[in-house]
Structure formats: C-alpha cells, structure tokens
Design a protein around this nucleic acid. Structure first.
Length: 501
RNA sequence: GGCCCCAUCGUCUAGCGGUCAGGACACCGGCCUCUCACGCCGGUAACACGGGUUCAAGUCCCGUUGGGGUCACCA
C-alpha cells in the first residue's frame, strides 16, 4: 500500500504568486522524489472572487514552471500535450457539491455535526455583545442548536460539533509537535446555507476522497489543522501528514506584495526569467542542502527533503534571484538561449532566425553579462539592428572631434587587414598603436561607441567579427562623422546624435 | 487580547553539545583588462536578551523581548 499522494489546491482568485508557486513546488518535488502522484484541485467555492480566467492563469503558471500534475483539471498546453484528468475527480470543488452533502449528512447522523438555524444577524449581535463586554477572550459563537433539532427545511448551515475539552495535535513534518487546546476551537461551519462547503470541510472531504497522504501548505493554515484533524476523527478516518511552510516576505519583512516586486509567476516569464531559475530560487528560499546554491531540476528532486525546510519566514531578495537566473542561463547551450530569446528580440523589433549562427555566436559573447533572456536580447540587439541612437554619455565622452581621426585610421586598418578575424585585427591594431604611441583605451572606447552605440560590450575584435567587415566600416565611418559634429543641444545634453544625422 | 508559530552575518542559510561559527547573494578592496561582465584572490559582517541543565550550549529547558499567523456563511 501507500502510494505517496501530494496536492496543490489553489483558489482561483488571482494570479499564482511566488508564495503559492513555492508551495506547489515543494509538493511537486516530494511527489516526484517519492515516485508518487501530484494532484491539483481547484478550490473555487468562493464564488464572489473565483474566476475562470484566474484558473487558467494559475494552471498556465504551473505548466510554465514545469510543475506538471498527474491528476487535476484538464489543461491543454501549447505543445498539444494535455495534463489533468484522473479517477478522483471532478477536481473543481464546485462540481463536488453532492459529495460534500453526503459527508455532511454522515457527520450529522453520527452526532458529530448539527444543523444550525441561527441567522447572520443573531451571530453579529452576539459578537457585538461580546466585544461590548470587554472580555479578553476571543469571540466564539455558541450555537443554541448544538444539542437540539430544528426543521431540516428551514434555512440553515451545518456546523461541526467540536469537542470542548482536551487537545488536538499532530507531528508536523517541518515544525515538529504542535498541540492546540480544544476549548479554543469553534463549531466551524461546514456547509453554508446554500450547500457550498467552507474551506475546512471542502479540504477534508477532498483530501480524504483523493487519497492525499501529506498536506504541505502555508503556515497560515496551522490554525485550521486541528479542526481538520478533528473532522477526520469524526468521520472515523485517518488524517494525512502535515507540513507547514513559512511565508515568503518582502525585503522589509512584511508580507510580500506587489509593492515589493513582481509577485505573479507569469511576470517573471515576461521579464525573461527561466523556469528552472525560478524553481531553483524558490526551492532554495526556505530550504537548503548544505552549501549548494545552484540546482538543476533533477538535483532538486533528488535532494529535496522536509527536514531541511526552514521554519523562518524568508525574505525575497531580487538580486540573489537574478544571480540564480544568470547561473541557469549560462548552463544552457547557446542554441537554446537563442531559441528562448527570440520573442524578446521580436519585442525589440529585431527579426532574426533562432538558428542564425550570428545570433548563436553573439550569445556566446554576451551571456556572461546577462542574467535573463530579456537582457540577452538587449545585449545582442545592436548586432542585428542599425544604430539609431548613441548612449548619451558615450557619445559626449568618446565621439569627439579629436577622436575622429582614430576612427578613420581604424577603419583603414580594418579595410586592409588580410583576413577578417579577431587575431589579425588585433595584430594590426596593436602595430598601429605601437607605432603612433597610442594606448588601446584611446581607441577602444570611441570604436566601441561607434560600433555598438554603447560603452559596454564584448571585446572589440569579437564585436567586429560578429558585425562583419562591411558593417564595421560603415559604423566606423558614421561614428567618425558624428564625432566631428559638436554635441548640439548643450542644454538638454542628454540627446545623442544619430549616425549620418 | 486568546491560541499558535518563529528567532545565526544586511539577505538566504549551514550547524543537529566540543567549529578559528561555514557557504551564497549584496557590499568593500585587489588581480585580469579595450569597456562592462565572467572568473580568481582577499576583506567587513551574525548566534536577540536573561536564567538554568552540562566538564562543555548557537545547539537542550524555562522566561523575557521582538517578529509573524489566526480568531468570517474567505481560502
């Protein structure tokens, strides 16, 4: 017996944020490492806030991250592959209402739950009275219907009959023993008056009927766990194991939100992050494996374990995230990077075939200074696009009248070099510098600005080879022309001249 | 306020009674160098506080303080 079954149960009320993604990831990792199953269930019982659009975004996010589910809602990916389905469906809670009704009835018959006819107004009145009394204890609604029956057809909710003595606890996979006094528990509502289950009941019925063996979720659910365990007991069923994960915090230690960073998983896709990098960063945020920082997906599956999941809330660190991205980017073959950066190039108006050797070669030279696909596209842009604007600082500092002759001389050398390749170009330039008593830096920066429009780029000779002789000659000439033209707008000073303008 | 959770460099963390408290990001130097990176070398930087237990405590226990979660016909 004992197939390990994990689940991720998002409520489709927004996008999938980093915290949710990490929860999903840990569940997925454990399922994969144990050869178990990973199931996704959509908790859409909040009809006010749940949307189909949100469901789609959440599933798309998970698919992008590579967190494929064995059972769950159906999802057709771009590649035509279909995820989802399974024997424990439906996987949308709103399609399982009949099941909840059945289980509620079972609890009522067993005397573990009861129909409560108290109205919202009555409850609100009690709450106010409680607050007015100045009592220090938290408010707990004591239903008058706990031990009496009413007419089943009158509007009512179904409440759990929680024990008033003793304690309920469990051995948490990340936090160890947790016990809670039962007298602090409420007779929580299981089914609303419209028959839709509330969180605690839906979760228990679904986890039970879906055969979930370990529930890993955010630690804001610690408070719900005793209630759920009690529900399993009331049903005479065994509760799953639990693992409660701490939250992801913003840099200021507060709950992570939009004002700290992009929090939607898909935002990172848009910014050119790689799924493996996101997965690595998220995995490592709150979990560790000795001194190792960079993990492939396979290593994560192999090495993940609950005993090394931390108990502290982890702060989001954008710089470290970027660093991890960069590491993963550099692990990729150039051809793959080329393929993945295609959309980002297009976004910049650059049309180039992903198999173009010039693109692949260019990537080889820029990838040490890029962390994301978007940065790759940016760093490679000027190889495929005419320079329409020089970086202001570079233009002002290096494209000056006194540098113009250098650019022209360099142009002649390039034109005259026997074979147009890095070694020969370097030899020619070095000989010239030697003869004229010039330093490399006198020439290199003006040339760089002329060739790339920027002050930072790969090595000069590499840039030239990538550009090709004709283009180099053209850009050098344009650069020299611009250099002879004084910077026009001294007031704004920020505008750089365009070549030939 | 009740209940619950948490506490090592600025940040993520290693540590599971005996360590010069280690690594990574960030930061600061240096090397490399045509710029920016990458890479390499080096540096600054932490056990919240107070009591115990023990020959020995970052590690175990208690308390304090400080964070956080939760107290819905939301999830």
């Amino acid at each position: 017996m004992g197939e390990v079954r994990l689940r991720f149960a998002p409520s489709p009320t927004g996008y999938l944020h980093l915290g949710g993604a990490r929860t999903a990831l840990y569940n997925w990792l454990w399922a994969r490492s144990q050869g178990g199953k990973f199931v996704v269930r959509v908790e859409d019982t909040d009809q006010e806030r749940s949307t189909a659009e949100s469901t789609r975004v959440v599933l798309e996010s998970m698919h992008w991250l590579g967190l494929d589910w064995d059972e769950g809602p159906e999802y057709r990916a771009d590649d035509g592959r279909t995820l989802g389905g399974g024997d424990c469906g439906p996987y949308y809670q709103m399609e399982r209402l009949g099941i909840y009704a059945q289980y509620a009835e079972r609890l009522i018959r067993a005397g573990q739950a009861y129909r409560c006819y108290a109205t919202k107004e009555e409850i609100a009145a009690e709450r106010e009275a409680h607050q007015a009394s100045g009592s220090k204890a938290g408010f707990r609604f004591e239903s008058p219907w706990r031990d009496k029956h009413g007419e089943p057809d009158r509007p009512h909710v179904v409440r759990m009959k929680a024990p008033r003595e003793g304690k309920t606890g469990w051995l948490d996979r990340v936090r160890g023993r947790i016990d809670v006094p039962n007298e602090t528990l409420q007779d929580v509502i299981l089914l609303r008056s419209d028959g839709v289950p509330l969180y605690n009941f839906g979760v228990v019925v679904d986890d039970l009927t879906m055969g979930i063996t370990l529930v890993a979720r955010g630690d804001d659910h610690i408070v719900n766990t005793p209630i759920q365990i009690l529900l399993y007991e009331a049903l005479g069923e065994a509760a799953p194991e639990y693992a409660h994960l701490s939250m992801i915090l913003g840099p200021d230690g507060q709950k992570l939100s939009k004002r700290h960073a992009a929090v939607g998983v898909l935002d990172y896709r848009e910014h050119g992050y790689l799924p493996d990098g996101v997965v690595n960063y998220l995995a490592r945020l709150g979990w560790s494996h000795g001194d190792q920082e960079i993990f492939t997906r396979g290593e994560l599956i192999e090495k993940f374990s609950w005993d090394h999941v931390g108990k502290t809330g982890a702060r989001y660190d954008a710089k470290k995230f970027l660093h991890v991205q960069g590491q993963h980017l550099r692990m990729l073959p150039n051809a793959d990077i080329a393929m993945h950066s295609k959309p980002f190039l297009e976004g910049k108006g650059v049309q180039v075939d992903a198999n173009d050797v010039r693109l692949v070669d260019a990537i080889e030279h820029v990838k040490t200074r890029a962390c994301t696909l978007d940065e790759i596209a940016n760093d490679v842009e000027y190889f495929f696009k005419e320079i329409t604007e020089y970086e202001a600082k570079g233009r002002r500092k290096f494209l000056t009248p006194e540098r113009a002759p250098y650019l022209e001389k360099l142009s002649q050398l390039v034109d005259g070099v026997a074979s147009f390749e890095a070694g020969a170009l370097e030899a020619a330039v070095l000989a010239w510098l030697e003869a004229d008593g010039l330093a490399m830096k006198d020439v290199a920066q003006p040339a760089r600005v002329a060739l790339t429009g920027r002050t930072r780029s790969p090595g000069l000779y590499d840039v030239m080879v990538l550009l090709g002789k004709d283009e180099v000659l053209k850009r050098l000439k344009d650069g020299a022309d611009v250099a002879r033209t004084p910077v026009e707008d001294a007031v704004s000073g920020a505008d750089a001249g365009a070549p030939g303008a």
